[in-house]
Nucleic acid binder design. Structure first.
Lengths: 214, 214
DNA sequence: GTGACGATTGGACGATACGTCTAAGCTACG
DNA sequence: CGTAGCTTAGACGTATCGTCCAATCGTCAC
């Protein structure tokens, strides 16, 4: 379903489908609007007129590429989620796989989110993000709750926490080029998420060290 | 420092500074590129030539607006963070205040992130986000750890988790128009973060209910 | 072989915005 | 009164978009 709307009106020949991938780095470097159709033509070797023959505009070319990446991500994550283990184990694996994916598809992933809110044709993609990312997380959470390896009160809140942690960590990595190893970060945030940051079981609000904020 | 680069080259007269705010909804509705300078001129009542007199281009107008919102957010959050209480209490308040802010400044907030990666002039803003958002969180986390109300092993991982949860929740609200009350969601994610989603204290990986994934 | 049809592509075109620039008017201050 | 800076209308030149046309080419059916 993503295919029909996000991709070309005419079916894209295989040979073209391969070449069009060369447009990804161009978009990644420049963003949607700074990218000129002529740049895409040059980068892909597909003449401008031909691009317009298959795509209504550059925005749809981007949509095509993003939906492709999204499909990859969906496949990757759902594979990981399908491996056996407790929900808890699978959740940790998901977090890790997701971060690794971000590490590998950095520019495109960033593009995915940079352009998400924009361009009407990308709406399908926004929905796809939910399916690709949140749904396997929710599933692992539910399974973990059922098999006793996790304790979930509010699945959607928990999913937001998990995904948010991954997203922010990934984006910090992409935008700020934070310290190397994403796999380590994955473990760190999994730890936080699993154990929580609450102090002792019975929190004592007695001592208040009013550390002067700022 | 944000001021000098992100705002105008010439000092912006007060009267203009007020009017220029009217450009925010236009940007919010259309995004950076779909917004025409003439639209801004019309919306603000400031003639095109005058806009160009003070700003090098529309991109800088947006930067001006965003840095303004960012300052507001910085102020709001640091106020909240400064209120007395345990780190844990202040963290919860931060989460709530942040989500409320998102609820109130929805379109601009979304714009803030939609345009973050783009446009060279917005780099300062990316740095500002870190200062405005993550730094008070980290502070609350540290204080909470010191006063015993929180238990933090890895401050930066914990901060990513907290901020990620807020961001994703807020974005879901903005993009998908999820169910109403952001304050409720704030409590829900605070709960998750504080308590963690790990099952019993000693996780048993014995029983594996291999719930068919997908 | 020939004709038809779709794919392919170069190049021209009109439209839209951008950002620049000029020149005229206005305000304020000395 | 004169200078300096602010303000603004409008004209320009440039870039890019998306459309369109015409020429070419390959393939398939008859």
């Amino acid at each position: 379903m993503i295919d029909r709307s996000a991709t070309a009106v005419r079916p894209l020949p295989d040979e073209l489908a391969d070449r069009i991938d060369l447009a990804a780095p161009v978009f990644a470097d420049n963003g949607l609007d700074a990218t000129r159709i002529d740049d895409l033509a040059k980068a892909t070797g597909i003449p401008r007129a031909t691009l317009y023959y298959y795509f209504p505009g550059k925005e749809h070319i981007l949509a095509h590429l993003l939906s492709r990446t999204l499909r990859q991500m969906t496949a990757t994550l759902s594979d990981v989620a399908a491996e056996p283990g407790t929900g808890r184990e699978r959740l940790a694996r998901l977090v890790r796989a997701h971060l690794v994916f971000i590490g590998e598809h950095g520019p495109t992933y960033r593009l995915l989110f940079a352009e998400l809110g924009r361009a009407a044709s990308l709406v399908d993609i926004a929905a796809g993000v939910d399916v690709a990312i949140l749904s396997p997380i929710r599933q692992a959470l539910r399974d973990g709750h059922n098999d006793g390896s996790l304790h979930i009160d509010d699945v959607s809140a928990a999913a937001s926490v998990v995904y948010g942690a991954v997203l922010v960590t990934g984006m910090q990595h992409l935008l700020l080029g934070t310290s190397g190893d994403l796999a380590n970060r994955a473990d760190a945030i999994s730890n936080v998420i699993l154990r929580g940051i609450g102090g002792q079981r019975t929190p004592r609000q007695s001592r208040r060290t009013t550390t002067g904020g700022t």
